[in-house]
Design a protein around this nucleic acid. Structure first.
Lengths: 203, 203
DNA sequence: CCAACTGCTAAACAGTGTTCAGTAACTTAA
DNA sequence: TTAAGTTACTGAACACTGTTTAGCAGTTGG
């Protein structure tokens, strides 16, 4: 049965080609601006061919969003394994998360801002990527509480609060909501805010 | 010169009609889904007519975003004037902001998430709506520091951190990033997180 | 050798934002 | 009152978008 195996392999390669090309276009223009026709042109196939490998546009960007989570996870691991103190670890995770957002704005967009991949996810009713990432955060927050770094009545709420603070900053920056500050002072302001957020504690 | 005055008035009325109709459609569907053609059909004019009153779609949603800020400002005022203690006032402002987001998701979307109105604003280089709103926050944070409720080396950074925390929570909810939590527990979780965020303090 | 299946595409459908030539009605001045 | 000028509006077009479908070559299996 070598033929059907080869065909299976070719199908996977085509899927990968479409995905890789999508990423390439996607690094320049945002999700909304990358069209199926553009992707098709880039890989020199007709637009209809793409629909033989992916159900629709959201499906493509759901796969891309998964790749983004792998990138983030990798970055997180690098940071997490080296630090013993749980509070220090939590802060480094926050820093890594924020930096990931600034360094990969379009991936971040897909993972945490855009509606697109969630439409696909809503069908399955569960957001596994988000669940895994949130779980590692939960563990670190739990470790902080165990080490009496701070108190928490509801660890999930505490974790979401930490996540929200980091996400809030990143998404406000990515969506140009700091246009009221002079450009030359903005970078320092973002750095100061990042440090401030990472040092906040429950009252 | 009664005629030119009447024409001026009619022009303003037409603008208002387009804007009101846009809001109406916009309360049901989000920015992306409301089309110029839909608005035109609703007011029983041709799509081209709308371009005699607004430069483009972004221009309409820039105006809508301003209306959103008026709504928010009103809500803020109701809360702010009645509270003496600055820390209490800050927390009530946060609560009002978060509730505004949950109660007016599409306005919130336009004001703080979507790119659309910022394209228009980037031309003018300054985001006045955001500037005004942020300034009132700045004042309250300053009042907190003056009353020694907490310390701050950089009041702007502290204010942005507070804003980020609130915005982070609202935008994660509005963009369906809590799909990993069971629906029946989500509301309590959001309430707990809100309370947690509003009680956070600088370390 | 022929039937079946596969991979692919041209073309179409229904929609989008936006522009522009042209029309019809209203206003102004002689 | 009439002719000229101005204004308000629109039909149709342009260049896009995501998605579907009928059909066409080429490969595969009996």
């Amino acid at each position: 049965m070598g033929i059907s195996e080869r065909k299976e392999r070719e199908k996977e390669e085509m899927k990968k080609l479409i995905l890789d090309t999508s990423i390439k276009l996607f690094m320049r223009d945002s999700y909304e601006k990358v069209s199926i026709r553009q992707i098709a042109k880039e890989i020199e196939y007709s637009p209809a061919t793409i629909y033989l490998y992916f159900k629709n546009k959201d499906d493509i960007f759901y796969e891309l969003h998964k790749i983004g989570f792998e990138k983030l996870k990798e970055k997180m691991l690098q940071v997490t394994i080296s630090i013993e103190n749980p509070l220090e670890r939590l802060r480094e995770i926050g820093k890594a998360y924020i930096n990931f957002g600034f360094e990969n704005p379009e991936f971040y967009n897909l993972m945490f801002i855009t509606k697109a991949p969630m439409r696909k996810i809503k069908e399955c009713k569960k957001w596994n990527c988000g669940f895994d990432a949130f779980n590692s955060l939960l563990q670190v927050v739990q470790a902080c509480v165990d080490a009496k770094e701070f108190e928490s009545e509801n660890i999930e709420a505490t974790s979401i609060a930490f996540w929200s603070s980091c996400h809030g900053l990143v998404s406000l920056v990515l969506r140009d909501r700091f246009l009221m500050f002079p450009e030359d002072k903005l970078n320092k302001l973002i750095r100061d805010t990042t440090n401030f957020i990472l040092k906040m504690k429950p009252a």
